[in-house]
Design a protein around this nucleic acid. Structure first.
Lengths: 350, 350
DNA sequence: GTGAAAGCGCTAACAC
DNA sequence: GTGTTAGCGCTTTCAC
């Protein structure tokens, strides 16, 4: 069953059927109704592959994430998906497993004709291979939107968060509680969230005249295991910190595992504030204070930017006039893990 | 850049290029090398859309889940994705938000030419509309594989788990701990996991001569909110249960929220065993005992079944001879939440 | 072992 | 307003 069958049945040409299918003007109301009727009667639906071949573009969006199982990314996908469905786009999801090699492979296998746009959380900010491929996509007319992580020296659209501000807020909160010995478990410095959150950490300390202690800065690579080891190292120091700022949800889990093993109580023996909330903890006695952000909305926003780019592309053939880079605001939810017994006593004196 | 350009450059016909591209025999080694060389040199990659149109099928798989953010489903996606990538399939993901209407809409928008196979965790086991559509796909040569949830009276392939056995094991564990008053927060009876787990619960009680108390059976709909209310109701009973079996990860979270509010300690004031583990709890003092299963592998297995069906389809044109329905085994990880102070004292006497 | 040509289903100039 | 026709880029008989 194809467009010719419908045309024959309705006594018109395939072109007219096509016009009706694509809501073109210049079709007599009568003809249109007749055709619509036949379509309904025969339960016909046009072949999208043929359509894509003919017009040269599809309605598929590719979404690439470093870790499929990380709830943070699932939430973004949720936003993208919802927005995509509203506008009849389909979303391909690809997991890069935080591996640049794999990222390149996927990018290479992604034929430009297959997708209309690409939303990506790149593994690394300075990987030239990835950057090159993304530029290639844009050059071919497939817009790229970044989320959360950036591409250094790139001219890509993106949705990011106020990482530095968020981190600073978290550290500020610890300082307010009386902490002076505050450590940070960072993400890789090759990612925007990694270095920006570190910057925020330093900024907050500086603002309060607290010198930055290099030993208190340890890299957790945004991974649980590395963070676990980092936390171990911190605890074993001669002069251990009283508080730790953890750079993302994964590193926070690593901290928690370490604390659990050492039987240290959060918000009493040691303080931890994390970037990004961990939903499940709300159901437990682990009262994590965390920097929050509108994650679902970040996904929606990425789709919005992409669609705008689609329109621009139609209007003015390439030539990116404005780069759309949106920042979402962070919040801070205090739940108690920022506290510490050492400073609580002082407070009672007040 | 298309197949003609390559042909011209290599001094052959497009047909020969096509043969090389598709690894056909009957191409002189020499010609083949020449063509390969040109392809590499020009960095050509064939247009998949055109190819799909020509051969009539794509390498796209659709994956439909009730809840994009549920980690259980993310893990399945991870399995599917990995297996798909190994074999050059692309995966579309769609969230139905546990809503049959939305499920139908997505199914309808999924043109058969677009996808080669469909993996779905259907919202409901008895929704005729969905069943109809799935049968339609199969009739059109697009195989369907179910995961976790079944379609009543359907003849679909699928990967399920030993729900009844798993649930029975969990309840068994509670009984061993001394519990007699054991409640269950069920999933919807319109889903295989829902009714099978209930069946397992009953079975375990019967095995130990414990009468089934209807008041102890409350539906949580596999949703946190409903489960939270269910737990409230249980706790407010005149003769409340000492233990609760929770039918999935979401209902378990509902239980935990309720317990937290009531300031009841898990594994002391009340016992809870859940179906499906909750990873994040391992980092806390909430020592949940849970029924586990190889979730990632369930995703892989679904892809494996699908691929086998693709092969069958090529060999014998439709006619499903064997239905592939695989069951994965469940395990039980005891962490302490199955215990209860009332029975610990007895134990100490022993 | 290779080439010519028809066709997959749709769209969009261009003609009428 | 509507029809004719030439592609979109690839595959696949059928000849040679």
């Amino acid at each position: 069953m194809n467009i010719y069958d419908i045309a024959k049945e309705a006594g018109v040409s395939p072109a007219t059927v096509s016009r009706v299918l694509n809501n073109h003007r210049n079709v007599k109301e009568e003809t249109r109704n007749k055709i619509l009727e036949v379509i309904k009667g025969k339960n016909y639906s046009p072949n999208m592959v043929a359509r894509n071949l003919s017009v040269g573009i599809s309605r598929n969006i590719a979404f690439m994430v470093p870790d499929i199982e990380n709830p943070f990314f699932s939430k973004i996908l949720h936003g993208i998906s919802d927005k995509a469905m509203d506008n009849d786009y389909n979303v391909f999801m690809f997991g890069t497993a935080e591996n640049t090699q794999r990222e390149h492979k996927i990018l290479d296998s992604l034929k430009i004709e297959m997708i209309k746009g690409l939303i990506i959380i790149p593994v690394s900010e300075c990987d030239q291979e990835t950057a090159l491929r993304l530029e290639e996509f844009e050059a071919q007319g497939v817009p790229v939107v970044l989320i959360d992580r950036d591409i250094r020296n790139g001219r890509f659209d993106g949705v990011f968060s106020e990482d530095a501000e968020g981190a600073a807020g978290a550290v500020e909160c610890l300082i307010q509680e009386g902490h002076r010995k505050i450590a940070i478990i960072t993400g890789p410095s090759t990612s925007r969230p990694g270095h920006e959150r570190l910057k925020g950490y330093k900024k907050a300390l500086e603002n309060h005249g607290i010198p930055v202690n290099k030993d208190y800065i340890i890299c957790g690579n945004f991974m649980e295991e590395d963070s676990y080891k980092a936390m171990m190292k911190l605890l074993d120091m001669d002069d251990p910190p009283t508080a730790v700022f953890s750079s993302n949800n994964m590193t926070t889990l690593g901290c928690l595992r370490c604390l659990k093993e050492r039987r240290l109580k959060l918000g009493r023996d040691i303080s931890v504030v994390g970037f990004d909330d961990i939903k499940e903890l709300e159901y437990t006695d682990t009262h994590l204070t965390a920097v929050t952000r509108p994650v679902y909305e970040m996904g929606c926003e990425a789709m919005r930017i992409l669609e705008r780019r689609f329109q621009d592309g139609e209007e003015m053939m390439g030539e990116k006039l404005i780069i759309q880079r949106n920042l979402v605001k962070t919040g801070l939810i205090k739940r108690g893990s920022e506290k510490h017994k050492e400073f609580q006593e002082e407070k009672q004196d007040e």
